[in-house]
Amino acid sequence: MIANYGYKDGSGEFFISIDTAKCAQCEAKPCVEACPEKILVIFTDDYDDEVIGVKEEHRKKIKYSCGPCKPITEKRNLSCQKACPSGAIVHSW
């Protein structure tokens, strides 16, 4: 399953997409600790797979929550993507 967390507003589309089929295969889930803003959470989904998701309180402000990893003047450093061994995390912006 591809789970899209985020929103679209007048300034653009801001979604983090998680491939839960890939995510469920990874036991360590290092992305959760790697995220400096601690926006990711591990939970059991409707199909009893242990996967990650974006915390409820970050979903409506994800553009800003992820902002520190996406500086305009420097190279992006997406810690969650780097930590994910299976390439299950995609940012739309």
């Binding site: 399953m1 591809i2 789970a3 899209n4 967390y5 929103y7 679209k8 507003d9 979604f15 409707d46 199909y47 979903r59 409506k60």
Partner: peptide
């Protein structure tokens, strides 16, 4: 009925 892909808009 197994979900393959979903997205939610609850901000706006």
């Amino acid at each position: 009925g197994k979900v393959l892909n979903f997205t939610i808009s609850d901000k706006c």
